[in-house]
């Protein structure tokens, strides 16, 4: 059996686009989070909704910044 080359899970040339996309989505969700925090009163706020929005935003921002690092040549 010939040795199988190990490749990156996602093709390298997609990193810059992926990073931009994930960061844009992440920032939009973050914006939604802060708008929600600022516009709803203390009594009307739903903790679950806040946490879910925060989780979604952080997943997008986290992966976005990872691909930003990879795209700029900082291979973690």
């Amino acid at each position: 059996m010939a040795p199988k080359p190990v490749t990156s899970p996602i093709p390298i040339h997609l990193y810059p686009m992926l990073s931009a996309l994930l960061l844009v989505v992440g920032l939009l969700v973050t914006a939604f989070f802060f708008i929600y925090e600022a516009t709803t009163s203390t009594r009307n706020r739903c903790l679950a909704k806040e946490l879910v929005t925060a989780a979604v935003a952080s997943v997008f921002l986290g992966f976005g910044s990872l691909f930003l690092l990879l795209a700029t040549g900082v291979y973690v």
């Binding site: 989070f33 925090e37 903790l47 806040e50 946490l51 925060a54 989780a55 935003a57 952080s58 997943v59 921002l61 986290g62 992966f63 910044s65 990872l66």
Partner: peptide
Amino acid sequence: PLMLVSSVFLFFVAYI
């Protein structure tokens, strides 16, 4: 990536 995600999430939790 999970490390990056959790650090961003910690920031949100602190804000909440």
